[in-house]
Nucleic acid binder design. Structure first.
Length: 631
RNA sequence: GCCUCCGUAGCUCAACGGCAGAGCAACUGAUUUGUAAUCAGUAGGUUGGGGGUUCAAGUCCCUCCGGGGGCUCCA
């Protein structure tokens, strides 16, 4: 045997991995949850028959966590079956953070039920039952699950192609499962159930609704507690809550899914737009704006009528059908077509902060994250085929720069390739995928491959940014589009005097401005950097006598373009400070007798406290510098 | 859209089928404050809308509206 730590050893054929661990007496023996034998993930009970390379996986590895959580799901199913014997099992996988299991039960689980299930899980873990793997024929498995009345398992079974399937059991509980699992339930540590909700069997709304229970678990209690604390923290940062608290935006029954921007929220919005326009102009983009409504005929031409009609708002003008745009591209194409183009004009980079409307289903609306009206930071790049790769690289660079400005340094990249339902020739797809792939490799950016997840008209690169709570958000996208130039018969005059079809790159960096603002509200927890903060500083006069001086400072700083307010209320200073802190104002300028006579202001930093008196010039300098640094 | 839970004052939340309440915010007055809540008072409600059961409904039932959680990360 060769081990991943570099050591080697010889063992009798048929020795189980857990035995080997014991004999090796390594620090892993208590921590290993499963093992990879020649790259294949197996149980520790797996017996080795021949020479192999072995890597033990622990909770520290992603694969180990998956095994751990998967086993938790399995144990949860065991607990549910004990408490609710009539429950039928769906599926129970490990997910990015924890696990779930779906059950078909007569009544949804109540919070009390979850408590009872959680207690039963703890009992099963404490009993330290071994998980036993059996490999049996599909027919035998079918008769077992038929006997148990597990109709969903039978359905899964009927779709499996292997002749042999694996079944795991502990103490009478049996489940069809690919595995691997931890060797015994005692390894599972501390489990917390997080909630229950309905979920369609296999995610299809024509199927019955099962009851899904979500859970999380860690080997160590302290880690579980830290995780729960982080969930609490995320709750506190919920942009819907902060949106109200900081008076940024609101939603109303009169227009569900359509955000109302309040003055302070609009400042955020406008700051982002100003920054976005500045960097795009610098990069040679020309900014355009196209109509909200376009006639049906255009949508038929663009293909939206066939592919996107469900989500479009339609109306009629002078007897002619119109639809509100769900995407900006057709408008951009019309501008391109409005004049002839030479190869010398390309690449043509046309940016549009376009307001789009999509009729999202009622049930999927979610604060600013999922709305029916939003602004895309869109752009369409028309270029020669040989320019496409450089253009993609430029967009990658710009995207990363913009993310960094908002403090997103961790960016995960995905490359999505040709889906089953798609248009265009094999050769076109191969070339386009290669363009994106080599752009990424030229930038030395590692990416995850997402086969078959491209748009029907072309492959794409997606950017997922990671926020301060390590959550990932898909924002940016770069798509190569073969369909639109064709459908709209775009052309340019080549150096050969012939007309050619340009390549179109469709891209967004922030995605939806509304959603992006929701993301940064949670990312910053409402503590916006100075350049974004709706109110950058609050002047706090200590008493009535200092209001005049405070007002002078306020208008002085206002004159310098700073967003500043004064709190003139007859309240104690502590009260006004608390108020400003609660509203997350970055700077407080406290002014009293001393400051008025010395023409200074005492500077107080949000969450940090007093840093002493500064001259007004120094205050202005400091704030302006911080604003221009965008820190 | 579907499943499920929820909707009480501007906000956060109480009230066994039996008189709709508290804190904060707002407003009025007093106080003039030195780095995270001064005191007192006033006002604020068709309990999301509509219908029903009941002697009696915030509470139970139906329905509509809105919101929360979720609806393949596949044995």
């Amino acid at each position: 045997m060769k081990f991943s730590d570099g050591s080697e050893g010889s063992f009798e054929s048929g020795t189980s991995l857990s035995k080997i661990l014991q004999q090796k007496n390594s620090s892993l023996s208590g921590r290993a949850l499963a093992a990879k034998v020649d790259g294949q993930l197996v149980d520790l009970n797996h017996a080795l028959g021949q020479d192999a390379t072995v890597t033990f996986v622990t909770f520290e590895d992603e694969e180990g966590r998956d095994v751990f959580w998967h086993s938790c799901a399995h144990v949860m199913a065991h607990a549910v079956k004990e408490l609710f014997p009539s429950a039928k099992l769906g599926i129970g996988p490990a997910i990015a953070s924890g696990f779930y299991y779906d059950f078909d039960v007569a009544d949804p689980f109540s919070p009390q039920d979850l408590e009872a299930i959680e207690a039963r899980i703890a009992k099963i873990i404490k009993a330290n039952l071994p998980l036993i793997r059996e490999v049996i024929s599909k027919e035998d498995a079918a008769s077992i699950f038929r006997g148990l009345g597990e109709t969903y398992k039978l359905e899964l079974l009927s779709e499996l192609e292997d002749e042999q399937v694996s079944v795991y059991s502990q103490n009478g509980f049996r489940d069809l499962c690919r595995g691997p699992h931890v060797p015994s339930t005692g390894r599972l540590g501390h489990v917390k159930l997080l909630g229950a909700a309905g979920a369609y069997w296999r995610g299809d709304e024509r199927n019955p609704v099962l009851q899904r229970i979500y859970g999380i678990a860690y080997p160590r209690k302290s880690d579980l507690e830290r995780h729960l604390k982080r969930l609490e923290e995320a709750k506190k940062r919920d942009h819907r809550r902060l949106g109200r608290q900081l008076d940024l935006f609101s939603f109303h029954p009169e227009a569900p899914g359509f955000p109302f921007w309040h003055p302070k929220g609009l400042i955020l919005y406008d700051q982002i737009v100003a920054y976005w326009k500045k960097v795009h102009r610098r990069e040679g983009y020309q900014l355009v704006n196209t109509p909200l409504m376009l006639c049906d005929e255009l949508w038929r031409c663009s293909g939206h009528w066939d592919n996107y009609r469900e989500a479009m708002y339609c109306t009629e003008i002078d007897g002619i059908g119109y639809a509100i745009k769900p995407m900006n591209c057709p408008g951009g194409l019309l501008i391109y077509k409005s004049s002839p183009h030479s190869y010398r004009d390309l690449p043509l980079k046309m940016g549009e902060l376009g307001l789009v409307h999509r009729h999202e289903k009622h049930g999927v609306l979610h604060g600013l994250f999922r709305v029916r009206q939003f602004t895309q930071d869109d752009a369409h790049i028309f270029c020669l085929p040989e320019q496409a790769q450089d253009q993609v690289i430029e967009v990658i660079d710009l995207s990363l720069e913009i993310y960094k400005t908002f403090g997103f340094r961790e960016v995960h990249v995905e490359l999505s390739t040709r889906p089953r339902k798609s248009i265009g020739s094999d050769e076109m797809w191969a070339r386009a995928e290669e363009t994106l792939r080599s752009a990424l490799s030229r930038k030395e950016i590692s990416f995850e491959l997402n086969p078959g997840a491209g748009a029907f008209y072309g492959p794409k690169i997606d950017f997922h940014i990671e926020d301060s709570l390590s959550r990932r958000w898909q924002c940016g996208t770069i798509q190569l589009d073969f369909s639109m130039p064709e459908r709209f018969d775009l052309d340019y005059m080549g150096s050969d005097g012939e007309k050619h079809r340009p390549v179109m790159i469709h891209r967004a960096i922030l995605g939806s401005l509304e959603r992006f603002i929701g993301i940064i509200i949670e990312h910053y927890g409402g503590d916006f950097p100075l350049w974004l903060a709706p109110v950058q500083a609050k002047v706090i006069p200590i008493s009535r006598d200092h209001v005049d001086y405070g007002a002078q400072i306020t208008s002085l700083l206002e004159g310098q373009g700073l967003r500043i307010e004064i709190d003139k209320r007859d309240e104690k200073m502590g009260y006004k400070i608390r108020d400003a802190e609660t509203l997350k104002v970055p700077y407080m300028l406290v002014v009293g007798e001393k400051e008025a006579s010395a023409r200074t202001a005492s500077l107080r930093l949000r969450h940090k406290g007093d840093i002493g008196a500064l001259s007004l010039d120094d205050v202005i300098l400091r704030l302006k510098e911080e604003i221009s640094n965008k820190t």
